[in-house]
Design a protein around this nucleic acid. Structure first.
Length: 443
DNA sequence: GACTGTCCCGCCCTCTGCTGGGAAGAC
DNA sequence: AGTCTTCCCAGCAGAGGGCGGGACAGTC
């Protein structure tokens, strides 16, 4: 008996015979088990909607003696395609670090060597209990890929291969397809076929142009955050944004406890360990770890018309916005606890008001002598003045025991009368040329 | 096979805001 | 002279925009 299997359907020799396709693991053969398949796809299953038919050669043999089984060998008629293709298991191992949707290898059956991927896909598709994914019968056993077309499936299976036959003659980098190689070579030559109609930008691939247009012109942001209003042009940006909600920090510093939400921040953070300062001020050649820091430096230090920030509550002008914030926090924030004036009984809840109030005491001669009308601004001056009333002279000369009310007076006395090296300052009047011990201008 | 759109990773940039050390002035 | 306060400044992290480019699947 000879059967052929149309893509997505089973053609059988007898109209009233149904078969269950299963794998004989020990031999690598595929069995069609006769007569158990009420829930199996029938020949009338209706999967003939393909434009391109792929044929398999199915050879039938009698099963074990006494059994009712018919053993079929299914082989791909497109032998030439298969011969160049490594076993898919190998491809799966190579692909283990590939993209997420490619990573999720299914934990299905172990296929013996020599069973063509198409056969596996078809058998998987017809396996008992397998939900019928309508019109996508070709399922990769190394990942979640499914396809309705054998051509797409065949092409997909090559992604599990390491074969990259198309090599760039400029940098020797290899690619799986001509298209990829061509795009790559365009990056060498600067060829940018996809030009933006609204600006001068041009790109190597159409995808880059589409993305550019979304960023710059259409502002279409298809990827929307389910938690906040954030929306992005790219899925990766939404993924990065989502980490600000989840707190996830996948990128761990190897030298400290810091972990970042994206690779760039980790790279930037590593400069704090290496001491690298890649940004140099073109004027004073000071180096900085971040470009933004340097930019602020240049603006504040080397630019005319430096922007200043006026405090909305007082006349203070501050160079940096962040410092204005500190100023507002320190001086203009309401404090529940009362702040008392150090000179009087007034109380305030805002530090700025307190400081302003205390300045009103600044020129006050708050210290008044209880013996005379003398008044002064500082307590230490009053202390000295009080001695004129009490007669107290606490500073005594160690050489002659003469006493003084002020330390400065004692010092002057000591230098003048007991210091052999003392040379008195002489002030000469420019008019009469007379000499004086202190500055005097003659009339 | 070629074209196209999508996805993903990576890189770099800007803007923003917080922090702490140091200088300078006030007290 | 010592202490306190304010401002200047660089360091550094958070968040997001924009682009480069490789990989891959759908379609013709």
């Amino acid at each position: 008996m000879q059967l052929h299997v149309l893509e997505g359907s089973v053609a059988v020799a007898s109209e009233d015979t149904k078969f269950v396709v299963s794998l004989a693991e020990s031999t690598g053969w595929v069995k069609l088990e006769k007569g158990q398949g009420e829930d199996q796809p029938s020949a009338e299953g209706g999967f003939r909607a393909q434009t391109q038919e792929q044929f398999f050669l199915v050879e039938a043999k009698p099963g074990d003696e006494g059994s009712d089984e018919i053993v079929l060998t299914i082989s791909n008629l497109n032998v030439g395609e298969q011969e160049d293709r490594p076993a898919s298991g190998q491809g799966h191992v190579e692909k283990a670090n590939s993209t997420d949707n490619q990573k999720k290898a299914k934990g299905g059956r172990r296929w013996p060597v020599g069973v063509a991927p198409e056969v596996r896909a078809f058998v998987e598709w017809t396996a008992p209990g397998k939900p019928q994914e309508a019109k996508r019968p070709f399922c990769c056993d190394s990942c979640v890929f499914t396809s309705s077309r054998i051509s797409s499936f065949n092409r997909h299976m090559k992604t599990h291969s390491t074969e990259k036959p198309h090599v760039c003659h400029l940098c020797l980098k290899a690619f799986r397809t001509v298209t990829l190689l061509r795009n790559h070579i365009n990056t060498h030559t600067g060829t940018r076929p996809y030009k933006c109609g609204d600006c001068v930008m041009a790109f190597v691939t159409s995808g880059e142009l589409v993305r550019h247009r979304r960023y710059k012109h259409t502002h279409e942001k298809p990827f929307k955050c389910s938690i906040c209003k954030y929306a992005s042009v790219e899925a990766s940006k939404l993924k990065r944004h989502t980490r600000s909600h989840t707190g996830e920090r996948p990128f761990q510093c190897s030298l400290c406890s810091y972990a970042s939400k994206d690779t760039y921040k980790l790279k930037r953070h590593m400069r704090t360990h290496s001491g690298e300062k890649p940004y140099e001020c073109h004027v004073c050649h000071t180096r900085f770890t971040q470009s933004g820091t340097m930019k602020i430096h240049v603006l504040q230090k080397h630019s005319k018309n430096v922007p200043k920030y006026q405090c909305p509550h007082c006349a203070t002008i501050i160079a940096r916005k962040s410092d204005l914030r500190v100023h507002l926090l320190n001086l203009h924030t309401y404090k529940a606890t009362e702040m008392k004036c150090r000179y009087c009984t007034a109380v305030f809840h805002e530090r700025y008001a307190l400081v302003q109030h205390q300045k009103t005491h600044k020129n006050e001669k708050r210290f008044k002598c209880e013996y005379c009308s003398y008044a002064c601004k500082q307590e230490r001056h009053m202390t000295v003045h009080i001695r004129t009333h009490t007669g107290e002279k606490p500073f005594t000369c160690v050489s002659c025991n003469k006493c003084f009310r002020q330390k400065q007076l004692l010092n002057v006395h000591f230098r003048k009368y007991h210091d052999a090296d003392f040379i008195p300052t002489v002030y000469q009047c420019p008019k009469c040329s007379k000499s004086f011990s202190r500055w005097v201008l003659c009339e």
